Amino acid sequence: MHLRDVQNDVAPAVTDAFEEVFESLCPAGRAGGAGVTRIAERSAVLQEALLAEDRCPRLARRLLGTDVVYVGGDGVRHDGAVDWHRDGGHRALRLLEIVQFLEPLSSRTGALRIIPGTHRRGGSWDRFTPEMANPLRFLGMESAEVPAFAIESSPGDLVAFDPHSYRASFGGSAGRRQITTTYASVPESDEARQELSDYLLAGRSGLRDSGHLPGS
C-alpha cells in the first residue's frame, strides 16, 4: 500500500533526526552504505513521528487486522543497487514493514520494486531463490529487467508491504535514505510465537553495512 503525503507534516523533522542519529553513530567519512538498527527508538523526534499510536502502529493494525507488536526497524543509507531478496522463510509469522524514503524516487532513480504475489508462502515462490539470486542465468534477463511494480514515492509518503515479498532497487544514486518500522501480528499459535522469538533474537547490531536490509 502506498500512502501519499501522510507524513508531509513531519518529513523535514524526520530527515533532520535521521542525520543526527547517523552523525552520532557512523564514523566521519564512512564509505559505502550503512544501516542503524531500531533507529526510531534512538530519537525522540523519530519516536513521535513514526511510533506514536496515530501513525505507523495504527496503520499496521488496520492492514494486518489484529493487534500488533513493534519488532524494530532500521535507518539505511544505500549506495548503488539493492538486488532481489525477501525476508525469512516464516510460515506462521505475519509481518508488515512500513518505509519512509527521504528522497523523491522514481523507477529510474532507486524506487522500491516489488513483485506482486511473492509474499505468499508455502508455494512456488519459496523454491524460487536460485532464479532471483541470478536472474541472468536462470531467467535470461538482468536483475533490473525482472518484471515488477515500482513504487515511485516522495519524502512525505509511507509504503507498507509484507517483507516476505521479493523486492529490489536499481538506478539510484549514492546515499539514498530510508527509515523502516516493522510490526508483527500478535502470535496466536506456538509456531508463530517461536518464529517471532527467533526473529527478535536474530543478530541485529546497532550499526552495520547495508545490503539486504529491511525495506531495501
Rank of each mutant, 00 (worst) to 15 (best):
E152A: 10
L25V: 12
G72P: 05
L112S: 08
A34F: 15
G65Y: 04
E19Y: 12
A17H: 12
H2M: 07
P187D: 06
T129L: 10
A148F: 04
S205N: 00
E48W: 15
A202V: 04
Q194R: 12
L196F: 02
S124G: 03
G117L: 08
M132W: 09
D5A: 15
H164E: 09
L59R: 03
L63M: 14
S165K: 02
A111S: 09
R62V: 10
G89W: 12
A31P: 03
S107F: 01
R176C: 13
C26V: 15
L112A: 07
E152M: 04
L102E: 05
E97K: 01
S216C: 06
A111G: 08
D157G: 08
H119P: 07
E131A: 13
D54N: 14
G211I: 05
R120F: 13
P147W: 05
V71G: 07
S197W: 10
S189M: 09
S189N: 03
L201V: 06
Q178A: 15
R61N: 04
G117S: 08
L213H: 04
F149V: 13
M132D: 00
R42N: 02
S165E: 03
D67S: 08
S24P: 05
V99G: 01
H164A: 14
V10F: 14
L201E: 10
M1S: 12
L200P: 05
A174S: 09
A28F: 08
V76W: 01
G65V: 11
R120D: 11
P155C: 07
F161P: 08
S106Q: 05
T118C: 03
Y199M: 06
G123S: 13
D87M: 01
A40I: 08
L93E: 04
V76K: 00
G73Q: 02
E142I: 05
V71P: 06
R38Y: 13
A34C: 04
S197L: 15
S210A: 08
S24H: 10
W84N: 03
A11S: 15
Y183L: 00
